[in-house]
């Protein structure tokens, strides 16, 4: 195929970042800027020190030019994340409900807007790392439950799903194939079965 094989069927981390940058985020502008019409969203008239919601990538451009402060989302503070961490420990079979792009958002904000966060960056980093590890352990444990029909991954973020996808999908596919071949075909002549055998790889 034309698309390189490492881009087929899975997203790269940069692509996930790209998707996460489309999320709206609240900013505190320092200058007044006129409204901009983008594809899909509009950046409203920005007035100094008046909170507005803009796409994250616009916020990052303004931030690098020192034209705004980013208001961190309400889940990005040590207290909230500590609570979630306790949640994870209390419920060993579920994932706590974090936003679908918590990893990418927190990484972007920690690197590019660290001066806008209320808590210290090192503390946030360590609690995020803890959360990530405990969720990783859970998803590893969950892989034991793979079967040919379904899997429930409630509360897993996009990046975490993306990590296990290249492993989970082929394994489930093979399990399904093996399951299907043991089923009895009611209709289906010999010739059709022959065609299946020769064309299947």
């Amino acid at each position: 195929m034309v698309l390189p094989s490492h881009l087929q069927g899975n997203l790269t981390p940069t692509e996930i970042n790209f998707l996460a940058e489309n999320e709206l985020i609240t900013i505190l502008p320092r200058y007044s800027i006129k409204k901009i019409n983008l594809i899909g969203v509009t950046v409203p008239n920005l007035r100094a020190m008046r909170r507005e919601k803009v796409p994250l990538w616009v916020a990052l451009i303004l931030k690098t030019q020192d034209k705004c402060n980013i208001v961190p989302p309400k889940w990005l503070n040590v207290n909230y994340l500590k609570e979630k961490y306790d949640d994870e420990i209390r419920k060993p079979t579920q994932f706590s409900d974090l936003p679908w792009n918590w990893l990418e958002l927190s990484k972007i904000l920690l690197t590019k807007a660290s001066d806008d966060l209320q808590d210290s960056v090192s503390e946030l980093r360590s609690i995020i790392q803890d959360l990530r590890e405990i969720r990783l352990i859970k998803s590893r444990k969950g892989l034991k439950e793979l079967n040919e029909s379904n899997i429930a991954l409630n509360g897993l973020s996009l990046l975490e799903i993306n990590e296990i996808r290249p492993f989970v999908l082929p394994v489930m596919n093979k399990l399904r194939q093996m399951h299907d071949t043991t089923l009895k075909h009611d209709a289906g002549t010999n010739e059709e079965n022959m065609a299946d055998v020769t064309d299947d790889e």
Binding site: L7, E15, F18, I61
Partner: peptide, 8 residues
Amino acid sequence: DLQPPTDI
């Protein structure tokens, strides 16, 4: 380029 754009 197939990489998503990051910096201008």
